[in-house]
């Protein structure tokens, strides 16, 4: 039988964690043990997830590629498919196709300082890389994470932020927009670019991964460039709408690149050559 590239693998839901008022993370495992055994991916890749009866939706695989027993994804309730995913419980079955797309060049980044900058729901696609780097701690220099959200209630994976902070040579800075803090808030107040500036990180031989709303990315770039990072050292992951994930449906291109096949990870240097189509 020839492979039907649109037919997903069936996945058992192992765990659902509500992260915020409208964000959940889900842990899933392959039903088919043979498929589970052969499956591998690289951090930064994405999958297409099915709620049967409702449709498919695209999310980054936000677990580390070192975790072999399951994969995780995280989503915000925004439409019919994510509404349906919101209802799933432990033991339910969903569909998964992937892994698709390119990945973070974790090998290229070895020996360098890593700066992770995330805004709001953009934490999951950074989380996989942070875990991967922490699990290979010797291979990387200082790790800085600046994670901002609108309010304290919008921060996802809060418990893991604490866990990361325990690691050596690791700085975790969390911030909320002005007004989004609570009386007992111990993090920073302000937007990611300002907080990054204030943190006055010694960026030596650093690479940065910046994911978040376009406005955050735009305002962060000048700060990184003041810190001495070249355009080829700044990476992001694009969030284009996708349907097929395999370069067929014609939906995800940004100028000449198909984000599903040639992305979603691009350096700023690569982005500079793309037309204003994102």
């Amino acid at each position: 039988m020839v492979m039907n590239i649109y037919k997903p693998d069936l996945m058992k839901v192992l765990q659902v964690r509500q992260q915020t008022g409208d964000v959940k993370s889900v842990r899933i495992a392959f039903e088919d043990p043979a498929r589970a055994a052969e499956f591998s991916f690289r951090v930064g890749q994405f999958g297409i997830f099915s709620a049967f009866g409702y449709g498919e939706s695209t999310f980054n695989i936000c677990s580390s590629s070192n975790w072999k027993d399951y994969i995780e994804f995280c989503f915000r309730k925004t439409g019919a498919v994510t509404e349906a995913l919101w209802q799933i419980e432990e033991g339910d079955t969903i569909g998964f196709r992937g892994p698709y797309g390119n990945s973070y060049p974790m090998e290229e980044w070895e020996g360098r300082d890593l700066i992770f900058l995330g805004g709001g729901i953009a934490m999951p696609p950074i989380r996989c890389a942070i875990w991967y780097a922490l699990e290979n701690r010797d291979k990387y220099g200082h790790i800085t994470v600046v994670y901002g959200a609108r309010t304290t209630r919008d921060l996802v994976f809060q418990d893991e932020l604490d866990e990361w902070a325990q690691h050596e040579r690791t700085t975790i800075i969390r911030c909320v927009d002005p007004g989004g803090e609570t009386p007992d808030w111990k993090g920073e107040i302000g937007f990611v670019p300002n907080v990054l500036k204030k943190a006055a990180i010694q960026a030596r031989n650093a690479v940065a991964l910046v994911i978040g709303p376009p406005i955050m990315i735009k305002n962060t770039l000048p700060v990184l460039s003041d810190m001495g990072l070249a355009e080829r050292d700044i990476y992001t992951s694009l969030e284009n709408r996708m349907k097929c994930g395999v370069g067929k449906c014609g939906r995800c291109n940004c100028g000449p690149v198909y984000v599903c096949k040639e992305g979603p990870v691009f350096s700023l240097e690569q982005m500079k050559h793309l037309p204003n189509d994102f």
Partner: peptide
């Protein structure tokens, strides 16, 4: 032109995943 969409059609407890023409 070959752009397409992928959608679900479900009745009761059974359904099909469909592909249909779409356009940029």
């Amino acid at each position: 032109c070959h752009c397409f969409d992928i959608t679900d059609e479900k009745v009761g407890s059974a359904g099909v995943r469909m592909r249909s023409w779409d356009s940029c």
